[in-house]
Design a protein around this nucleic acid. Structure first.
Lengths: 329, 329
DNA sequence: TTGTACGCGTTATCAG
DNA sequence: CTGATAACGCGTACAA
């Protein structure tokens, strides 16, 4: 079913049908009604792709994410997809995977689809190869990085002050009387490094030398959180509080403290980051640094759509995180 | 950059460029190389939409999901997206929302995009309005229901034997010496009803009258799980084991048992369904009925792609669930 | 108020 | 082996 079919049945030309569909003025009311009637009868819907070919847009937005299964990316994708759909855009989701090659591959895919814009979710996209990929494949359309930034004329960034957020976490633990503080977490992304830096700098303010700092690396899963915690406590049983780079790691840690017979928060305080579902599931519930994923998603979607529609915008938007206190501190 | 631009630079016609791009035979090696060189130089990628216009396909697959944030839907979407991408398809994701009107709206959106096929995730899509919507909007393309089925010529279903699965859960609890068994869960989807039916039928086999069965309704979140459990125990303190329709509800319940001073599994056994991350996060860890989401996702994607590519397939594929025993039973 | 003709980027067909 | 031409479904100047 095309506009030609409708046109034939209505005894008018295809352009007339097109005009009716797009609510253009200057059509006799009787023909408009006749066409509308037919449109409804065959519940005809215009082909967005063909439309895009002539309008020179697709109303398609690409969402690139390392792995959609990670909870905060999902939350973000949800908010963004809703925002887009309400404005007539469709979201193409691509799990780019962790390697920079795969990310570039994802960018190429989006170019092939001629997306009107792209959203890259996660600080992992903040690297040279992606920058190069955007330059090669998506130079013509706005690109928004959620929790990242790249210095390119068409790239916008929405960021959260993770370094400052962790500093406030350190302050909170000190205020609760915990002196000896350690840090366990991932170190594989710019975001991770910002968090770590927050811990290091704040501890130095409290008079610790960088050689005194107790830091342990972990992967972003519970098993790793469990093991890293056990490892750290074996060496530094005196630690009174640990900040974890992600709730999921802290969730594994909670189990470790249980098994080792420590009470949370009396013996050891635990503080996670991301304020995800993990934080509410552990016993006791985790205190967590909320890095405002929902807000970030909303702002990223807004900036992207506005840029696509030709409105200018701030290139970098900074959001502030909040500590959500629960039972683990 | 179009094939015409490339053609002009290579001193050939657009058809030749097109033939090179599509690896068609019958091109002089020297011209092929010359064109390929240009293609690389300008890292040109063909416009999939324009391509689709003439090929009469889009290589776009629509994924309709009630809410992408629910963990098992996310897992499924991940597997499906990877499968599709490896085969040259792109996934359009739409959060259809819980109402049947919104679902129909989502179907219309997919028609507009002229998707080559659609995947509807969750038994919630198993209703008359969606059936009508598929008939109106997606009659021409294959549609796969993950965990559901609709009797329409172009609809395929991949299902899991939830009723039978719950029966085996009842058996397991009995074998562990738990006699008095209750059921708490959602009752708002065909899938929920199948689970409930499994509980009811198996209990009858064990000699219980339907009026003896202890059943409590809950929403699919932790708060509701907590409250429903407290409510049920107040009335039936003698219950020795509870089956929950979803892990997330059971996760709330675990907290309720803690607060009420019951030991799991000694005092009360807890059994969830879905084998999601929730099950591993609670303390003790949940025994859960694994309804094979990953396998279902793989099969659904496979059937969909094969149907899109013209291969015939079983209209209904049934998978079998497994109980994953952890610490709560 | 309506229709004709063209172009969007690509592929298929047919002629050379 | 290669090029010209006609589609694909739609929107839009321009003409009537």
């Amino acid at each position: 079913m095309t506009i030609y079919d409708i046109a034939k049945m209505a005894g008018v030309s295809a352009s007339t049908v097109s005009r009716v569909i797009n609510e253009k003025p200057g059509i006799k009311e009787s023909t408009r009604e006749k066409v509308k009637q037919l449109l409804r009868e065959y519940n005809y819907t215009p082909d967005e792709n063909a439309r895009g070919l002539v309008n020179r847009n697709t109303r398609l937005i690409g969402i690139l994410v390392v792995d959609i299964r990670s909870a905060h990316h999902t939350d973000l994708a949800f908010v963004v997809e809703n925002y887009l759909r309400e404005r007539g855009y469709c979201a193409i989701i691509i799990n780019a995977g962790p390697s920079e090659d795969q990310m570039a591959e994802g960018l190429k895919l989006l170019e092939q689809r001629r997306v009107d814009g792209a959203l890259l979710v996660g600080s992992m996209f903040q690297n040279e190869q992606v920058k190069q990929g955007i330059f090669e494949h998506l130079r013509e359309v706005p690109v928004v990085l959620a929790n990242g930034y790249l210095d390119l004329p068409n790239v916008y960034g929405v960021l959260v002050d993770e370094c400052d957020g962790v500093k406030r976490c350190v302050e909170l633990l000190r205020k609760k009387g915990k002196e000896k503080l350690a840090y366990i977490g991932t170190m594989d992304s710019p975001s991770s490094m910002a968090k770590l830096k927050g811990y290091q700098e704040k501890m130095k303010e409290f008079g610790y030398d960088s050689s005194d700092l107790i830091i342990e690396e972990a992967d972003a899963d519970r098993e790793s959180g469990y093991e890293a915690t056990v490892r750290l406590l074996r060496k530094h049983g005196e630690v009174e509080g640990i900040i974890y780079s992600e709730d999921v790691i802290a969730a594994g840690a909670v189990r470790a403290f249980w098994d080792l017979g420590y009470k949370i928060p009396e013996d050891k305080a635990v503080l996670g980051i991301d304020n995800t579902i993990y934080g509410e599931l552990t016993y006791p519930k985790l205190t967590s640094l909320d890095n405002k994923m929902t807000e970030m998603a909303y702002e990223a979607a807004r900036i992207l759509v506005e840029a696509v529609e030709g409105k200018t915008n701030t290139k970098r938007l900074m959001l502030f995180s909040d500590i959500v206190e629960r039972e683990s501190t």
